[in-house]
Nucleic acid binder design. Sequence first.
DNA 1: CCCATTTGACCCTG
DNA 2: CAGGGTCAAATGGG
Length: 360
Amino acid sequence: MDNILSQVFDACRLARELESNLRRANVPTDPHYLLGSCEEIAGAFNEAIHRLLAGNLFSYPSQMLSGEAPGSRLDPGAGEGSSRGTGYMQVPNLPGTPVVEPWGLEIKSAAPVGPSNYPGTPNTGVEPFVVGGGEPRLGAETALSGRRADGSLPHRSSRTRRDNGTVTRRVPALRTGNMEMPPDDGYTWRKYGQKDILNSRFPRSYYRCTHRSYYGCEAKKKVQRLDDDPNMFEVIYCGTHTCQTSPTPILIPTLVPSAIGNNMNDNDNDDGGGGGHQQGASPQSASIQLRNWLEGNPRNTRTLLVPRSGAGGSTSRQVGQQPGGRDMDDSVAELADAMFNSASSGSSMDAIFSPRQRSL
DNA sequence: CCCATTTGACCCTG
DNA sequence: CAGGGTCAAATGGG
């Protein structure tokens, strides 16, 4: 176990080093440096994950250990056309790498059918996202039978999803920032409703993609706090983020680290918000910019990337997506999300490191 | 002024 | 009819 902790600490150290470098005025401008660093960090965390899994600390499905992409065979349609689904769930799967959730969660891909939770799921507060229907309290998630049928477009998530195109995930509330909201998933959402749900202490909130009017994006999500664990949210994603398929290229001309979080937001010019200031129009997280750059910039040295396909899941601006799987690259991108995304957390690093870890 | 959130009413499905 | 999902007016913040 010490060995594992050591590995974790090592990964934390790498991340801190990167953060430190990025914060310096004279930060490296080489995106390759960023990529390399992120990969190194992701690799370190993945190593820790592997060790944890290998240690049978948790009763993870063997497929997680083998690196078989969860859901890779559950979702034949994954990645076709728009692999972007909603939030992080649309990240295409690719065998080879354990999936690390941007919120620090191990993606529990779904069993093809059956119980939503794996037996023996570690009680770490990190629960697998649930393939629809598995969660009793939110069983109504299947009742996407609102007045309009536009919310039930086939979901392109490559992660597990059910036939009706919904994916349910459980995410912990942020330790920092607004505890009333689940961690930012990289998309911009507009709340359009809230409703008290039968037998639930907490109301369910309804969100749709902010870019709905602009891109006609029909992605939606429902967020509800768990009765038995108010620190956890159950997020049900529905629909596909078509806003990412906008013909408008979202490229970052130059990746200037100092631009992370500001200049890179030039990409937001295509934001339907038209310069809004609230969540929906807030600048995309730097991680999104980074990912977009990594994935969309034609000048990007793709050879640096692990062979991959498709964009990661969380960004609302992925471009150039292809069918395929999820791999280290996605982990890197998601790590970047966690690292840079400050949309809903007070500290970017808090998104990935607990205060204790950071104090190490 | 624009945009997001709130919230009560309405609609749809089972 | 009950419950869930959505609409849209009202409200508030930047």
